[in-house]
Nucleic acid binder design. Structure first.
Length: 166
DNA sequence: GCCAACGTTGGC
DNA sequence: GCCAACGTTGGC
């Protein structure tokens, strides 16, 4: 079987809900990226995202939204059981063991950016100005990123003490 | 299957 | 706090 090429993603989160510091503080620096309730993002989580893929960690819904760090996918898509829990915030009564509907992946903290990349910085960077996250009205919480964009983010932001080679 | 109404996201 | 953009819902 041919080896799959590593892919790259940007994942959005409101830091008041789950921040990169929360990820860092999680056991092993790993968390389940669950609670996503959008079909387009679900399809990526279920079908496209694989262990080893790179993740740009983006803080939204704050005064200065920015890419703040790097994570790595460590487990591919699996059913998001929070959808089946009536007490969970994103409970979906239509989801069940035979029909999970929603999926999650596991991501692990890798590094903070030395310099968070704000939208202003991204817009002014020749390789980053066309990122999906900058497009008006884009609400997709998981979105693809090109290898060129991935490298440009790391170069422009700089990694603080990466735990493993990126 | 259409489409208006509604709720949510998220930058500004 | 405002509002544009988008996805979902539900009446018809």
């Amino acid at each position: 079987m041919a080896k799959r090429k590593r892919k790259y993603w940007l994942m959005k989160t409101e830091p008041s809900c789950f921040s990169i510091d929360d990820l860092k503080a999680a056991p092993g620096g790993v968390t389940a990226w669950d609670g996503v309730r959008n079909y387009q993002a679900r399809n990526l989580l279920r079908d496209e995202i694989q262990a080893g893929d790179g993740v740009l960690f983006y803080h939204s819904g704050i005064k200065e939204p920015a890419i703040v760090g790097i994570a790595e996918v460590v487990a591919p898509g699996s059913p998001d059981e929070t959808a089946m829990d009536p007490h969970a915030e994103h409970y979906d009564p239509k989801a069940g063991p035979d029909n999970p509907i929603w999926y999650k992946v596991d991501v692990a903290f890798r590094a903070d950016l030395i310099k968070p990349l704000t939208r202003d910085i991204l817009r002014r960077h020749p390789d980053l100005a066309d990122m999906a996250v900058l497009r008006k009205g884009n609400r997709l919480s998981v979105q693809p990123v090109t290898k060129k964009q991935w490298r440009a983010v790391i170069k422009a932001g700089g990694l603080r003490d990466p735990l493993v080679p990126i």
